[in-house]
């Protein structure tokens, strides 16, 4: 088994995919850093001050004004109300919701990358892990060895898990190191609030906790990793089922994009919450924003993802061990 994993790791490194992924993430982080930098500048110009409290207060007044408009939808109104209460809570407790620094950038980057960017990067590795062996014909060499088929597939899957862990780590490192050039390498100790509960209309602040940012980040990383593993496993299954890598990637891509679109409009279609792609934004539960469909919470989303993960894994192993190879 060890030899098999070593063999797969060797293939992974030889393909240099991880380097490509690092480059993509690096370029994107530079873009986002610049955009963020510009935004801070315009805000400073508009408010005439660096004071975050003024900015938050102004934001609260702006949200209140938007709420008074009759043209916005109920759903959007609810989200605005929650964000309003949250901002007010931060202000009342004198905590900056977005302390400037590379670590805050890293947090925001992770929160936004969890449902699209990171899954895409994982797909780059996962989608041809098995299907490329078919298209290149190397699968025969692999299967003629005196090892059980499920062991071959398991070694591939373990390698995928390693690769996912590395991708998440790369995303973290690059977002910290590159954005730090502009924002400064600080802020791991700054406090951040978590544990906002969203009940029907209002924000429940009874269980709000104060955390250091580094703890919060580690939790965020865990959630991002979990999502990446689930998406990776689904994509792994497709690569077992479909011999064409491009087709497998297309299916996965369509699912991910539909998830992003659906989250914005499924509030009235309740059973959509059992689809894996609307459950990807796990970090939002930590931050305390309203879920796309009422009744969703961290354990619900995680169980939905777990069921999809288990099903995908089961299908992959059954198909791979039963299939005729010629």
């Amino acid at each position: 088994m060890n030899k098999l994993i070593q063999n797969e790791m060797m293939k992974l490194i030889a393909k240099k995919r991880l380097v490509v992924i690092a480059l993509i993430i690096g370029v994107l982080v530079i873009l986002f850093t610049y955009a963020q930098y510009k935004e801070i500048q315009t805000q400073r110009e508009r408010l005439g001050t660096d004071d975050w409290r003024t900015a938050v207060q102004q934001n609260i007044v702006d949200i209140t004004n938007r709420l008074s408009s009759s043209r916005i939808s109920e759903e959007w109104k609810k989200q605005l109300k929650i964000s309003l209460q949250q901002q007010q809570y931060y202000l009342d407790h004198d905590i900056n919701p977005a302390e400037p620094g590379a670590s805050t950038f890293m947090r925001i980057f992770l929160e936004n990358a969890i449902d699209m960017l990171i899954p895409l990067m994982v797909m780059v590795i996962a989608s041809d892990l098995v299907s490329s062996e078919y298209s290149q014909g190397t699968v025969k060499l692999l299967l003629t060895r005196p090892v059980k088929r499920w062991k071959v597939l398991l070694s591939k899957y373990i390698t995928l898990c390693f690769a996912v862990s590395l991708i998440v780590a790369i995303a973290g490192f690059l977002s910290y190191i590159l954005s730090g050039v502009v924002f400064g390498y600080k802020g791991f100790g700054t406090p951040i609030l978590t544990g906002f509960n969203i009940s029907d209309e209002a924000l429940n602040t009874a269980n709000v906790k104060l955390l250091s940012l580094w703890k919060f980040l580690l939790m965020d990383f865990g959630l991002v990793w979990f999502v990446a593993i689930v998406v990776g496993t689904l994509s792994f299954m497709l690569s077992v089922l479909i011999r064409s890598t491009a087709a497998g990637m297309g299916v996965m891509l369509a699912a991910l994009i539909s998830g992003a679109i659906l989250s914005n409009m499924v509030s009235s279609w309740e059973s959509a919450k059992y689809l894996f792609m609307v459950n990807l934004r796990l970090t939002d539960y930590m931050k305390g924003t309203a879920p796309p469909i009422e009744g969703m919470n961290l354990s619900f989303s995680m169980s939905v993802l777990l069921v999809w993960w288990a099903a995908a894994l089961l299908v992959s192993f059954i198909v791979f061990t039963k299939r005729d190879v010629y």
């Binding site: 906790k209 990383f221 865990g222 990793w225 979990f226 961290l298």
Partner: peptide
């Protein structure tokens, strides 16, 4: 990351 995940669930 597994540790972080566990911590997140526990904390939540």
């Amino acid at each position: 990351w597994i540790f972080g995940l566990g911590w997140a669930v526990k904390n939540y």
